[in-house]
Amino acid sequence: MSGARKPLAALLVAGALSPALAGCAAGTASAPAGTSAATGTSATPALSGTVTVFAAASLKATFTKLASDFEAKNPSTKVTLNSAGSSDLVTQITQGAPADVFASADTKNMAKLTYAKLIDGQPANFATNVLEIAVPPSNPASIRSFADLAKPGVKVVTCAPQVPCGAATDKVEKATGTTLKAVSEESSVTDVLGKVTSGEADAGLVYVTDVKTAGDKVKGIAFPESDQAVNTYPIAAVGTSKNKELAAAFIATVTGSQGKKVLTDAGFGTP
């Protein structure tokens, strides 16, 4: 009776008791500081070590590019990038995750850290983002404007009002007097995009930059009312950072001309 069944049963219980493990926080451990630059002392002090950057999910592509540019320019540095939803990142930093730089997709989440006195100095706004309608390439519901989304029978997916992209959607709805009947209110903009690229939804409200990243998997339809809800992206050094010099240098790269170029290419606006 017992023998072989017990371990199996134990395994099953373990499985049943672990419900929502999806939001596994991938806290990046800070790598040991790089070996001090052995390349002799030049006129400007060489930067070295590891800088850990916590960046909003929508910044993943641009920051990956900026990080490798930064490493190329400063050979004895290493940039460790951790991308997730801004509020996830705030939670991680509040719980002591080793971050040197935090770049948020909205000012609200940055304010949470400023309020908790975990930010060094003033956050700098470095980019803006607006909503755009994403439709499958064939545009099955013939969407042309924001008002078209409210037509009966159109399957539109939005972000839930609790997350930044949903708050922006809410603002646009209020400003235009249009009420959308979404078939799903997702908790992240990538989930909205996924529903559109898979063809499940006729349209989704995402950021301009998401449409650009998705390439030819979706078609973007810009709408003038989007300027009613402009999202501002702030960046700042985290107060507990052990390598403030490096953090400041990375922030300067993002806010400088090179950062501007990479961000504009990806569809971001300038604040």
């Binding site: 929502a20 799903s184 209110e185 997702e186």
Partner: peptide, 28 residues
Amino acid sequence: FGATLTFAGSLQGVTRTLPLEIYLQRET
């Protein structure tokens, strides 16, 4: 949680089950 989120979406009263509600509430 995961399969529901990916496949069914998330809408109050229709597809937003308790784990999805928890995930969303956590944002705010």
